[in-house]
């Protein structure tokens, strides 16, 4: 379904990342097309979160090149603050600003970074709160919201900056199971609206239903990628099969043993 006008949204060439002696990414080549929704799956420690964080330069790559919307992120002279305006990031732990109301969480960067006036920033903030179903929480503080509400507010905060690309770092992993659905619904709607998305997730159902492409990572490399029905339905590699059977059928972990206990990178 994805056509690629001009450059891809994300382009990664031979990316390496080490934390001290620990090699987390060992040569990643990877692309996300404009309007494409890519889900990155893999066991913990596989480097998928590190990959995502490299795209936004929250981690400095050890080697390799990254372009986002045609701008080279790995150029030492890149105007990082300017490029990041076009990239939304959603964290596993929400990272809402606890000292600000939900509304101010959504307006502060609009006002400080985009120099929007208060009225305009609040109008855009309220529109995005409506988009994630939190109209009535504008004046609440983050601590007064449930985890699911906090994550939706965090998504709305990113959307208020009108990014071209949204990065999701295990957005539902810190949530109680019954709150996961609300967040995934918001993300699904976002995908249907044509947002370019790169999602690191353990939600296989979401990957199957929403992703245009699924990427399976293990041990710091991309093991296989393709349409969800292929990667999730008929995986070619043993490692993918082992991972999927453990995720989809967790009570049988013991029989499979742990083939991929690669030591934990920050995930």
């Amino acid at each position: 379904m994805t056509t690629t006008p001009s450059r891809p949204a994300v382009e990664i060439r031979d990316l390496h990342k080490s934390f001290g002696p620990l090699k987390v990414l060992k040569g990643i080549d990877f692309e996300v097309g404009q309007g494409e929704v890519v889900c990155v799956i893999g066991p913990s420690g596989s480097g998928k979160s590190t990959l995502l964080r490299c795209v936004d330069l929250l981690e400095e790559p050890t080697a390799g090149k990254i372009w986002v919307n045609g701008v080279e992120m790995t150029d030492p002279d890149v105007e990082i603050d300017a490029v990041r305006r076009g990239i939304g990031m959603v964290f596993q732990s929400f990272n809402l600003f606890p000292h600000l109301t939900v509304l101010n969480n959504l307006t502060i960067a609009q006002r400080r970074v985009l120099r929007r006036g208060r009225a305009e920033a609040e109008r855009i903030a309220r529109a995005n709160l409506e988009r994630v179903g939190l109209t009535d929480k504008a004046d609440a503080f983050p601590a007064q919201l449930s985890g699911g509400q906090q994550q939706r507010a965090a998504i709305a905060r990113s959307l208020s900056m009108e990014p071209k690309l949204m990065l999701f770092d295990e957005p539902t992993s810190a949530l109680d199971p019954e709150l996961v659905g609300d967040v995934l619904t918001v993300m699904r709607k976002l995908a249907e609206d044509g947002m370019t998305m790169m999602v690191v997730t353990h939600e296989m159902a979401f990957a199957r239903d929403v992703a245009d492409r699924v990427v399976f990572m293990d041990g710091g490399v991309v093991v296989e990628q393709g349409p969800p029905q292929e990667v999730l339905g008929a995986p070619k590699h043993d490692r993918t099969r082992a991972f999927l059977s453990r995720v989809l059928d967790p009570t049988h972990v013991a029989q499979l043993g742990g083939p991929d206990q690669s030591p934990g990178a920050p995930d």
């Binding site: 936004d56 929250l58 603050d81 300017a82 990041r84 305006r85 990239i87 939304g88 990031m89 964290f91 732990s93 990272n95 809402l96 600003f97 960067a109 400080r112 970074v113 985009l114 965090a154 905060r157 990113s158 900056m161």
Partner: peptide
């Protein structure tokens, strides 16, 4: 202050100082 606060602010395009 958790590291994520600075990260979230930076990903919204704020400078380190802001």
């Amino acid at each position: 202050v958790p590291k994520g606060q600075m990260e979230a602010a930076r990903t919204l395009g704020m400078s380190h100082f802001t």
